[in-house]
Amino acid sequence: MAEERELQIHPIMQESMQHNARIVSNIRALTASLFGVAAGTLGLESFPGFLFYLFGTLIISLLIYAFRAEGKPNMYFYKPLADLWMGDLFGGLMSFVLTWTLFYGLVKA
């Protein structure tokens, strides 16, 4: 009820939300495969590799926070925690694993 009232007072642009979500997921998809390349080249195995991915997505979130959202995530995301910090956290995991194994095989084999 309180949330509905808040929405009525400050209406939300649906299109802007979609636009922002698309940009964030684009960035995440691009960088996930990049992290895979790095993890495979470094020869990481099992847990360190996934930790590397989590660390990388955290860095990406920080970069978006600093340079795209200009330090005001509330202005650009309706729910900053869900849309910016946790948004698409595991969406790029599959492409990460793909390039990770590919480059691990290329470099080590």
Binding site: I12, M13, S16, N20, I23, I27, V37, I59
Partner: peptide, 25 residues
């Protein structure tokens, strides 16, 4: 490797289109 990844991350993020404010006003 790590430096290259960081540079690419920064390049991708700064090259992405600008976000739009979600509040109508």
């Amino acid at each position: 490797t790590i430096l290259a990844v960081l540079i690419l991350c920064f390049g991708i993020v700064s090259g992405s289109p600008e976000l739009r404010p979600v509040e109508w006003a």
